[in-house]
Amino acid sequence: MTQMLKYVLQDVIRARFVLFYWLFIVAVTTLLFQLDSDPAKVVVSLLNVILLVVPLVCIVFTTIHFFNSYEFILLLMAQPIARKTVFLSQYIGVASSLALAFLAGVGLPAIAFGGAAKVLSILGIGLFITFTFVSLGFLAASLSRDKAKAIGIALLFWIYFALIYDGLILWVVYAFNDYPLEIPTLILTSLNPLDLGRIVMLLSIDVSALMGYTGAFFKEFFGNLTGEIFSLAMLSVWVLWPLWVALHRFKHNDL
């Protein structure tokens, strides 16, 4: 496994894309810190980057990478190596290099500008989002043998979680406005990793926004230990279920 992981990492690094991704995040973070001296505001602006760019990059890169490594996988499959091992080392290799690029991309400028403590929550959520969308990327890749089609599926995932899903929530809460909606909304948002990550992050940086009557309810929920465990568990579920499905499909798909 470690041997395999080494090769996957070499492969990802050789692709240089991760380097560009890292440079991009460094540039954006640096720019935001330069534009605004208030770390809290920087974090809010970074939030938008993380909720849009990180999932997009992660899911598309993962899908493309999977197809680009097809030969590599074929080669490995002729060797006495379990598919699970091949798959998981691919996953860990891709996810960890993207995660590292993200961590260093946000973290280093933050340290340089003295805002490291403020970005901790963003780093945590960003990690979860990275792992989740790498999982979803593998899922998209496992759903089609055609590269273009798989990338299409990946983009669809992204636009669904980043945009369409929230539109649906908005529509639902508006339509059922006469009913108590706190718990249904809570459940609905938990079913979208981006929403969940956004809320957890907002509660740590932008508390006043969520402080209306309803906000207090959510604050109370997410603020206590149960809520933290719940959101952590949900975020983990979001990393794991697409990964599990993708692994299952990979184990039973023809190559």
């Binding site: 809010v44 909720l51 929230d166 249904p184 809570l186 929403d195 932008d206 926004a209 209306g212 906000g215």
Partner: peptide
């Protein structure tokens, strides 16, 4: 009020 959960979404 419940739609506050969408604050800062795209």
């Amino acid at each position: 009020p419940a739609s506050i959960l969408l604050w800062r979404s795209f």
